[in-house]
Computed example of a mutant assay.
Amino acid sequence: MPLITALLSGLLFGLGLIISGMTNPQKVLAFLDITGQWDPSLAFVMIGAIPVMALAYWFMRDRSSTCLQQEVQIPANRKLDAKLVTGAVLFGIGWGLVGYCPGPALASLLTGLISPLIFSLAMVAGMLVYRILARWME
């Protein structure tokens, strides 16, 4: 049952990304271009998503398991450290350069276009490089 729920959740999430325009890098780049032809429409996606997630977080904050008996994993670490800031900066640079972030890029793989494939391969390569560097620096 958890596998089916995960599949359905992923499909719903992907559909939401497609409907909202988050899988269109030109729309995302237009949203990020506040000094040019700014397209504020993706702000409505965030305005709609933030309250939904806040409600879900509030509802689950004191629970130890979900209705499917899966462990609730809410991070205990709330510190801003160099790893978090560096990751956020790299995420923002990548998003601003190409208009993709991980979820929309993966959903866009089904389009058959080369750009989400290149982004996804670069993302996986970056994760592998991070793992190697993290072990090396321990």
Rank of each mutant, 00 (worst) to 15 (best):
M1D: 09
P2S: 08
P2R: 04
T5V: 13
L7K: 01
L8P: 05
G10D: 04
G10C: 10
L11S: 05
L11N: 04
G14C: 12
G14N: 08
L15C: 02
L15N: 00
L17C: 02
L17H: 01
L17I: 03
I18E: 01
I19P: 04
I19H: 08
S20W: 15
M22N: 00
N24E: 03
P25H: 09
K27A: 02
L29Q: 08
A30C: 03
A30M: 07
F31N: 05
D33M: 10
I34L: 14
G36V: 13
G36F: 15
Q37T: 15
Q37S: 15
S41D: 03
F44P: 12
F44N: 05
F44M: 06
V45R: 11
M46V: 02
G48S: 10
I50P: 02
V52D: 01
V52P: 06
M53A: 02
W58C: 00
F59V: 07
F59T: 02
D62A: 09
D62P: 06
D62V: 01
S64Y: 14
T66P: 09
C67S: 11
C67L: 13
Q69P: 12
Q70F: 08
Q70A: 06
E71W: 11
V72R: 10
Q73P: 13
A76M: 11
N77S: 14
R78M: 14
K79D: 15
K79N: 14
L80S: 08
D81K: 11
A82I: 14
K83T: 01
T86V: 13
L90P: 14
F91L: 07
G92I: 10
G94Q: 06
W95F: 03
W95G: 04
G99T: 11
G99A: 05
P102F: 15
G103A: 15
P104H: 06
P104L: 14
P104S: 05
P104Q: 08
A105E: 01
A107E: 06
L110N: 01
T111S: 11
T111P: 05
L113G: 04
L113Q: 12
S115L: 11
P116K: 14
L117A: 12
L117P: 07
S120E: 03
A122P: 00
M123N: 03
A125S: 11
L128V: 10
Y130A: 00
R131D: 00
R131Q: 00
I132D: 00
A134N: 04
R135P: 05
R135V: 07
W136G: 00
M137E: 09
